[in-house]
Write a protein that binds this DNA or RNA. Structure first.
Lengths: 358, 358
DNA sequence: TGATTTTATGTAATCCATTACATTGCATTG
DNA sequence: CAATGCAATGTAATGGATTACATAAAATCA
C-alpha cells in the first residue's frame, strides 16, 4: 500500500510529450484508483459497474482517474467474486472445415447481443483436447460450452451441464442440441438423384461414430428403398470428411469395378475429392457421374462443376445453439431440448439426368 | 464405438442419462477437500501442484479424495494468485480463410509443448472486436496475444506488450513479428510469369491498409521493372481477399477492355474468383490467361485447373510466432524481433507459356 | 419540527487457491 | 546428548474486485 498515490496526482505532472506513447502509469487496482480519487473502493467499483448508484460528481471524478491512468479491472478477481465470466467456449473439431465458420458466426451474433464473448477451441476430435477445454468450465474460466462434436465432455459440476450440442447430437443424452433432420435431408438428396433416373447410387459415408452420419446413411437407404432399389453394400465407402478421403473412396469403388452413375457424399469436401478422382479417371461430372455433397460450404459453388449439395442452415444452427445455451445459463432448470431444423437441396452443376446410353 | 453408453446403463438407474458425466458431487474448494482428507489447505494445494513436497501417504489420500469427489481447482482463484493463466489468444480476422488454419496449428503445437492453451478469437477485422480480446490480457484472463492483423490493439499495461504479430506486421512498431518476405515472394511469382513470356500482367491487390499487401504490390512492380515492362496502373485492381472480389476485379478489367495474358493475385481466394470470372467470359485458364495466387491454401490444389501459387510456410509461421510469444512471456526484456521467412512458388496447372498468337 | 425514507458512501467480509513463514518431529552429526 | 538440518505440515496473508451491511447526510413526509 503506497502513499505514492497522492503524490502522483500533482497538477504539475500533466505536461507530457505528445509524440511518445503515453507511458501507462502503473495503476492496477481499485484500491489505487480509490485513493487517488479520494473515495472508497466500493465507490469505485460502483462507479464502474452500476453508475446510477453514484453521484454525478464522484462518478465523473472516478472516470477521469480511471481513464487518465488506463485502469482495467482485473477480470479474474471480478469473475472469482461474481462466479460468472460472460465467456463461452465453442468447440470445433477442425477450423479448417468451412462448414463451421458460418455456424460460429451465428453463435457470435447471439453471444454479442447478450453480452457474451466467444472463444474458439479446436479439438481435432481429440478427447484430450475436448476435455481440456471443458475443464475451463469446471475451473470457472468460462460459463458454458457449445460443442460441435458428437461427444459431450465430462464436466464435474453440480446440476445441468452448461453445454449445448450444435450440428451434432448425442443419442439418449439430456444435452440440448440443435441439428438438422439428417435422415430427411439425405433422403431429399437421394430422391433427387432418383428422379434424374439414377439407380446405381454410391454413398460416401462419414465416420460411423457420429450419429448424424448414421442418420445420413439411413436417409440414403430409405430413399433407395422408396425407389425400390436394393442397396448394394459394396457401393458404400467410409471417409473421414477430408477431400483426400473422398478421392480414396472413389478410387476404391472404381478399382472394385463397381459401376454407378451417381455418388452421394456425406459432406462437401469428400464430394470435392470424389469429383476430382472421377475426373482424373476420365469420367465426366455430371455427364457420366452425378455428384451430390452435403453442407453447402462456401467453396461448393466454386468447384467445377459447381456442386449440387444439401444446404444446412448454418447461421441458424449457430444462433439457435447460443440461444439455448444462454437460456440454460440463465436458468439451469430449463429442460433439455432437441431442436431439429430442416435443410434444403441446392441444385448446381454436378448433377444431371442419367446418360441414356449407360 | 459408443457402446460405452449402453454399457454404463444399469438396471434401476433409469433416470440417468446414458452418455453424460458421472454423478457430480458438490465438492468445490480446497477447504472441503482438506477437511475430508484431514489435512490443511496448504497440503492439498501442494499435493496437487508440487507433489514432491508431500509425503507419499498423504498425497495418495488427497488424490483419492480429489478423484472421488471430482474436484477441479478454481482456475480463476489460482490465476488471480499466481498472475498467470497459461492461456493465449490468437486473433484472426476470419476463420473462414483456410490460410490461417495451418498457422493456428503451428501455434497450437508449440503452445502445447510449453503447457499453454490457445483460444481463438475471430475479429472480422473489427477494431472493437480486437480490442475486446485484447482486454482479456489487460484483465489478466490471458497471458498474451498473437494477432494476425496489421493492427496492434492497445493494452494498457506496463512494459512490453505480450503481443506477437504473425503473417502481418506493423511498420515502425516494436512488436515482434514473423512474416514472409512478401516483396521477394511476389517478385518470384511475377518473374515466373515473365519467363513464361507474359508481358501484360494484371495484378489483383489486397487492401492497401495492410503492409504485406503493399509489399506484394511492390514485388510485382519491381519484377515488371526487372523485365523492363512499364507497369500499367489500369491493370491493377484492389480486392478484399474474397472470392467475389476476385471475380469483380476481373469483370472490371475486362469491361475496361484491358488486355492481359496473366493475372497475379494477392491471395488464393481472389485467384479462384478470378479464374471463375475468366472462364465464365469464355477465356481459358491457362491457355488464354495464366493465373497465380498467393498463400497456397488447401483448396488451391483442387481448383480446376489446380492453382499455381506462392506457398507460405504456414506451419512455421505459427510455430515461430508462438515461440516468440513464449520467449516474451518468460522475459519481458527480450528485444522485439522481426523474423522474415521465405516462401516458395508452387507451379500447378493455372499457368502456361503465353500463347504465341496473342 | 421530529420521524422516516432515500441517497451516497464507507467498512469489511467474501470468492478460492497459493505460498511465505512458522512449527513440529525426527534423523544426523560431532 | 545437544545442536543442527530437513521433511512434512499448518497458519495466515495475499491476489483484486464485489457487495452485504452500516452509517451519515439529505430529502420527504406528517
Amino acid at each position: 500500500m503506497s502513499g505514492e498515490g497522492s503524490k502522483r496526482k500533482r497538477p504539475g505532472t500533466k505536461g507530457e510529450p505528445a509524440n511518445v506513447a503515453p507511458q501507462p502509469a502503473r495503476v492496477r487496482t481499485v484500491k489505487e484508483i480509490a485513493t487517488i480519487a479520494k473515495v472508497s473502493v466500493a465507490t469505485v467499483s460502483r462507479a464502474l459497474q452500476r453508475p446510477e448508484l453514484v453521484s454525478e460528481a464522484t462518478r465523473l471524478r472516478i472516470h477521469e482517474v480511471v481513464k487518465r491512468l488506463g485502469y482495467t479491472p482485473n477480470a479474474l478477481a471480478r469473475n472469482l467474486r461474481t462466479a460468472r465470466t460472460r465467456l463461452i467456449v465453442a468447440l470445433l473439431p477442425d477450423i479448417t472445415n468451412p462448414f463451421f465458420s458460418e455456424v460460429i458466426r451465428g453463435i457470435e451474433q447471439v453471444a454479442h447481443e447478450n453480452g457474451y464473448s466467444v472463444l474458439l477451441g479446436e479439438t481435432q476430435s481429440s478427447l484430450v483436447r475436448e476435455q481440456a477445454y471443458a475443464d475451463m468450465v469446471a475451473g470457472r474460466q468460462a460459463d458454458g460450452i457449445i460443442t460441435m462434436s458428437h461427444r459431450v465432455p465430462a464436466i464435474p459440476i453440480d446440476g445441468r451441464l452448461p453445454v449445448v450440442n450444435a450440428c451434432e447430437y448425442v443419442r439418449d443424452s439430456n444435452i440440448s442440441s440443435v441439428y438438422i433432420d439428417n435422415v430427411a435431408a439425405a433422403g431429399v438428396a437421394v430422391d433427387y438423384l432418383v428422379t434424374l433416373g439414377h439407380r446405381d447410387i454410391a454413398f460416401i459415408a462419414g465416420p460411423s461414430s457420429s450419429p448424424i452420419c448414421v442418420d445420413r446413411e439411413q436417409g440414403y437407404r430409405l430413399a433407395l428403398q422408396r425407389a425400390s432399389v436394393s442397396a448394394d453394400p459394396a457401393l458404400t465407402a467410409i471417409g473421414d470428411f477430408s477431400i483426400e478421403a473422398g478421392e480414396r473412396a472413389i478410387e476404391r469403388l472404381l478399382s472394385q469395378g463397381k459401376s454407378f452413375s451417381a455418388v452421394f457424399c456425406s459432406n462437401d469436401e469428400m464430394a470435392i475429392g470424389a469429383m476430382r478422382a472421377l475426373i482424373s479417371h476420365g469420367l465426366r461430372v455430371p455427364e457420366d457421374v452425378s455428384v451430390v455433397g452435403f453442407d453447402d460450404i462456401r467453396f461448393a459453388r466454386y468447384t467445377s462443376p459447381p456442386l449440387t449439395t444439401i444446404a444446412q442452415p448454418k447461421n441458424a444452427l449457430g444462433r439457435e445453439a447460443m440461444t439455448m445455451l444462454i437460456e440454460l445459463l440463465n436458468d439451469p432448470e430449463v429442460p433439455p431440448r432437441k431442436r431439429v431444423l430442416s435443410a434444403d437441396l441446392v441444385v448446381r452443376g454436378s448433377t444431371a439426368p442419367r446418360a441414356t446410353g449407360r
